[in-house]
Design a protein around this nucleic acid. Sequence first.
DNA 1: CCTATAATGATAATGGTTATCGTTATTGAA
DNA 2: TTCAATAACGATAACCATTATCATTATAGG
Lengths: 145, 145
Amino acid sequence: MTPNLDSQITERLALDGLRFTRGRREVVEALLASDGPMSANELSDVLGDGVPLSSIYRSLAILTDAHILTVHLATKGLARYELSEWLVGHHHHLVCTECGSVEDIHVSASHEERLREVVDAVASVASFIPSSHALEIDGRCAQCQ
Amino acid sequence: MTPNLDSQITERLALDGLRFTRGRREVVEALLASDGPMSANELSDVLGDGVPLSSIYRSLAILTDAHILTVHLATKGLARYELSEWLVGHHHHLVCTECGSVEDIHVSASHEERLREVVDAVASVASFIPSSHALEIDGRCAQCQ
DNA sequence: CCTATAATGATAATGGTTATCGTTATTGAA
DNA sequence: TTCAATAACGATAACCATTATCATTATAGG
Ligand SMILES: [Mn+2]
Ligand SMILES: [Mn+2]
Ligand SMILES: [Zn+2]
Ligand SMILES: [Zn+2]
C-alpha cells in the first residue's frame, strides 16, 4: 500500500475516532491486490486464519460506513466490496453471467464524458439529482468463451 | 394485461411445460402496474393473503428461470424483480440512496446509441462479449430533496 | 374417468450477515 | 508509570431473506 493511500485511510478513519488496525489493513490490502470486488468469504480464503470471519464482516461494515469501501451487489445474497472511487478512481464493471466473476474496467475520458452526458440528461428529466453512476456490462468473460 | 403480453408469457412458459396460473398471473400483473422492480415482501403487501409468500417466492424463481422476469439487485440482502426487457423494452434505473426506491427510466434512442458505443468499445478491449448492459444512476429522487 | 405431472401451501432448513458479550488492546490523562 | 475510558477483537448466538421439503390439490391428456 502506498504511503499516500495509507494516510488517506488513516485520516478518514480518525475523523470518526477509529483506528487503522492490522485486521482492517489486511482487508484493505487484499482488496487493493484484487482485480475486482471481493466478498467476506473470498477475503477469508485469502487472509486465512489470521483474521477471523467475524472480524472481516465487522471491518467491512466499518470501512463502508466510513466511505473507504463501497459495496457492490451483482450476485444475489452476496455482497462484494471494493476501495471507494475517491481512493482508486472511477471505473465500471464487467460481470460474467457464466462464472459470476466481476472485473474492474476503466473507461477512457472521452467515453466517460459521453456517459456523464447521458446520466445528466436522463436524471434531469426525472428531477433526480445524481451522485454517482455505474455502467454494468453483463456477458461472457474471456475465460468463459 | 394486454392479450399479446399474456400470450407471450403463456407460450414462453409452455416451452418448459409450465402453466400461467392465477398466482403467477397476479405476480406478473403487480409488477406490470409498478413503476419499478418489487421484492417478494413488497409483492406480498400488494397481493395480500390471496397469494402466500412461499408461492410468491416460487413464482418469482420459476418466472425468472423462464426469462419472463429479471432480478434486480440494488439493496443488499434483498432481490427485486421486474418484467424482462424482451417483454417491456429496454430501460435503466434511478436508485435513491436516501429512501432506497428504484425507478424505471427510459433513455432516448440517441442516448441509448451512445451507451451502446461505450459498451462495445469497453468490452472489446477486455475480450468480453456483452449480452446486456445497465446504466444505474444513484442519487436523490424527487421526493427526497 | 384415470393417471401422470404440475402447482400449491405450510413449514423446516439454509446460509450470509448481524448482534451480543466477555476479553484484550490502545489511547490519553493523571 | 498507572489508570480509566473507549476501541477492537473473537467466539458464538440470533436474525432474516430465501430455498427445500412434503403432503395435498389442481390440471391436462389419454
Ligand atoms: Mn471495481
Ligand atoms: Mn426496471
Ligand atoms: Zn466468466
Ligand atoms: Zn428517495
